[in-house]
């Protein structure tokens, strides 16, 4: 059962990444692009976790945690830049 489900799930998440990437390239405004980057990192966590289950290896957890931390900081820094024109005051 898992052997069938995991490739399907991987394909769905890959499609999600492709769509976020489309919004990143297309995005009419800067906040749209930042939002696309935000979605991209969350999707990447999903992809890594799925891949970890697929390979049966828990090694990907640290990578996913790091992406979660860095992605959040990146989004906040970019929004702060849009808001103030500066990151550190």
């Amino acid at each position: 059962m898992l052997e069938i489900v995991i490739p399907i799930a991987l394909a769905l998440v890959a499609a999600a990444i492709a769509m976020s990437f489309w919004r990143l390239l297309r995005g009419p405004s800067v906040p749209d692009r930042v939002l696309a980057l935000d979605t991209l990192y969350v999707n990447t966590i999903a992809l890594l976790v799925l891949f970890g289950i697929h390979l049966g290896s828990a090694l990907f957890f640290e990578a996913a945690l790091l992406i979660a931390l860095m992605g959040f900081i990146g989004t906040v820094a970019l929004s702060k830049y849009l808001l103030r024109g500066d990151i550190i005051e």
Binding site: M1, A9, L10, A15, A16, R23, A36, T39
Partner: peptide
Amino acid sequence: YFLSFLILTGAIFTFIGSLGLV
């Protein structure tokens, strides 16, 4: 089956989230 259900739900919701973006 439970695991498959969770994985599919997760993947579908991730997909829908990005679909909303488009």
